[in-house]
Each structure stands twice: as structure tokens, then as C-alpha cells.
């Protein structure tokens, strides 16, 4: 006892450290995780940087012609060197082609997807719903080369017949005219294949938005004596409208960047072609794949610039889509 009293004369132990500062291990952890998290930023930046670095010379030589011109000629002069003056790289034909094919896909695919999502959310019995949702999700995982081959061998024969029908009965509309009776491998068929490829993504986004429709509003509509269609028109569709627009934009982004499927079912000709039933067209991605094989180093640079344009386009479309979808998701809670 006396000993402890003597010892109490020794100075009081230091105050324990009370701090909200993270410990060393946590600081390392946060550093590592933040670095990992920032990698998406780094990768997107690197993609932009490298494509710009490689495509810059083409972009400078061609200027605005790269976006507005529609001829693609890599001229090699007699001495075997690359002829800068006579080479023309104009992406307009393929940009228009990209938009045409993607818009056909949207026009065909979106009504089907939204209808399917409506059925799955508001009509389907549980057992059917489970199977159908699994099937459509599985379809999202199908490789694009499979869609390409299926489109080429299975869809194309039917598609040609439909194209002829459309031409016969709606041929007076400029889009459906044919300069020559060739309807194989047309933008129309490529659009149909892309429509099938975007069905899973548009369906699942729409389904998600539909399922967030506030239950009280649905029940209020039913309580007022609405039929199911009246409820959908008054409650679900207005609620989900902007979210579905977002889903459609996501589908558009996917349709614009598709390479292999389009390459398989489309006869890629470098020209502006508004006649969607005619066997000529293309999109930027498939054109890059087509030209890449035999491209000279200078043409590769032009293709890099084309890839840069495609990258920026899809990035813009996807960003708008994601902004819309995220916002809709929040307003529902």
C-alpha cells in the first residue's frame, strides 16, 4: 500500500490519444481503394489521350472535312510515300450510316421492349415472369458474333421478303425506294439485328423504372375504378417516361458502337445511302474493322481519329442516358 502511495508521486500518465484521424492502416486502405476507384477516370482519360495523339495529324490535315466529307481515300504516290494532299478522309457517310442503322434499331426495338417490360411488370403471372426475365437477361450475354451469324443465316431470308413487301407497298416514300433491285445485306436488316440486340437492355431498364412506380398511386387509380390500361396511361407511363427515354438512349449507345454484328449483316459501301432497303451502308465501328486489315500506317491514324469520334459520340449518348436514368430513380423515393 505504501509503495503505491510513493509511486503516485510519479507524473500522471499521458492523456490517451483521442482523435478522429484515421489510423495508419486505414489511410493506406483508403489510398489503395481511392486509387482503384480512380482507375476508370484514368482509363477513360488514356483512351481519349491515345486516340487523340494518334489521330491528331489526320484531324489537323482534314479539319472539318473529317466530319462533313464523305470520301475515304488513302492515296499512295508513285514513290510509295503517303500522299497527304490527295488523300481524303471524311467520316460523314459512315456517321450518317451509324445514325440510320441505330435509328432503325430504336424504331423497331423500343416499342417491343417497352411493351415487353409493361407485360412483365404489370401483367405476367409470377412463374412466367421469372422465366422470361431470365431468358431476356441471358440474351444480353449472347456474344455479338452470334447475333451476326444468326442475322445473316436466319433473319436475312425473312428480312429480304419483308423489305420487298415494304418496297412494294410503301415505295413512294423516299427512304423505301430502291435504285437497283438488291435488298440483301441492307441497313434495314442490320437495323433489325441491332433492334434484337438492344431489346434486353431497354427492357431491363424500363422494367426497373416501372417497378419503382409508387404503389399508392397505382392503387389509387384502381380504387377510382380504372382499368389496367387506364392506370398505366394515367400513372405508370407518365411516371416512367423520362426513365424510358434514358433506357432508349442506352440502347442507342449500344447500337451505335456495335461492330461485328453489323459487319456480318451489312454490305459496307463507303457512300451516303438514305435508302434503307438498298444493299449498301455501314457504320463507323464496322468500317474501322473493315479498313484496319490492309491499312497503311497513315490510314491507321485516320482510323484512330474515326475511333475517337465514335468514342466521344457514344460517351455523350451514354452520359445523357445515365443522367436521365439516375435522376428518375431518385425522384421515385
Amino acid at each position: 500500500m505504501s509503495q503505491t502511495l510513493e509511486q503516485s508521486a510519479t507524473p500522471i500518465p499521458e492523456k490517451r490519444e483521442l482523435t478522429t484521424l484515421p489510423r495508419f492502416s486505414d489511410r493506406v486502405f483508403r489510398g489503395v481503394v481511392t486509387t482503384g476507384g480512380l482507375s476508370s477516370l484514368v482509363i477513360l482519360g488514356l483512351i481519349l489521350g491515345f486516340l487523340l495523339y494518334n489521330g491528331y495529324s489526320t484531324l489537323r490535315q482534314q479539319g472539318m472535312h473529317f466530319l462533313t466529307g464523305s470520301n475515304w481515300q488513302a492515296v499512295i504516290s508513285d514513290s510509295g510515300a503517303f500522299d497527304v494532299k490527295n488523300s481524303h478522309f471524311g467520316l460523314a457517310a459512315m456517321l450518317i450510316g451509324t445514325m440510320i442503322v441505330a435509328l432503325i434499331a430504336i424504331a423497331v426495338g423500343v416499342p417491343i421492349s417497352v411493351g415487353a417490360a409493361t407485360y412483365l411488370t404489370f401483367y405476367a403471372p409470377n412463374a412466367i415472369k421469372k422465366i422470361m426475365v431470365s431468358a431476356i437477361d441471358l440474351m444480353a450475354a449472347f456474344p455479338s458474333v452470334l447475333f451476326g451469324l444468326w442475322g445473316f443465316f436466319v433473319l436475312q431470308p425473312s428480312g429480304e421478303y419483308w423489305a420487298k413487301l415494304i418496297h412494294k407497298y410503301l415505295g413512294f416514300i423516299p427512304f423505301f425506294q430502291l435504285p437497283a433491285p438488291y435488298v440483301t445485306r441492307s441497313p434495314f436488316i442490320a437495323g433489325l439485328v441491332l433492334a434484337i440486340m438492344i431489346i434486353p437492355i431497354v427492357t431491363s431498364v424500363s422494367r426497373e423504372i416501372f417497378s419503382q412506380t409508387p404503389l399508392d398511386r397505382i392503387q389509387a387509380a384502381y380504387a377510382l375504378g380504372a382499368t389496367r390500361f387506364a392506370m398505366l396511361r394515367a400513372v405508370a407511363f407518365p411516371y416512367a417516361r423520362s426513365g424510358i427515354v434514358g433506357g432508349v438512349m442506352l440502347g442507342l449507345g449500344r447500337a451505335m458502337g456495335e461492330t461485328v454484328a453489323v459487319y456480318t449483316v451489312l454490305n459496307i459501301v463507303y457512300q451516303v445511302n438514305w435508302q434503307i432497303l438498298f444493299s449498301a451502308g455501314g457504320n463507323v465501328a464496322s468500317m474501322i474493322l473493315l479498313k484496319f486489315g490492309e491499312a497503311s500506317p497513315n490510314e491507321v491514324k485516320a482510323l484512330m481519329a474515326a475511333g475517337l469520334v465514335l468514342f466521344i459520340l457514344t460517351l455523350i449518348v451514354n452520359s445523357i442516358a445515365n443522367l436521365i436514368v439516375t435522376r428518375t430513380g431518385k425522384s421515385g423515393r
Binding site: 476508370s40 477516370l41 482509363i43 477513360l44 483512351i47 486516340l51 455479338s144 442506352l250 449507345g253 449500344r254 451505335m256 458502337g257 456495335e258 461492330t259 465501328a285 474501322i288 474493322l289 475511333g307 465514335l310 468514342f311 457514344t314 460517351l315 449518348v317 451514354n318 452520359s319 442516358a321 445515365n322
Partner: peptide
């Protein structure tokens, strides 16, 4: 950015 990245075309 992660969402934007999921839209990068495979050819790019």
C-alpha cells in the same frame, strides 16, 4: 464515369 465506361464500344 463507370457507367460511361460501360458504354465504350468494344472496337474502341
Amino acid at each position: 464515369l463507370v457507367q460511361a465506361m460501360s458504354g465504350v464500344p468494344s472496337i474502341v
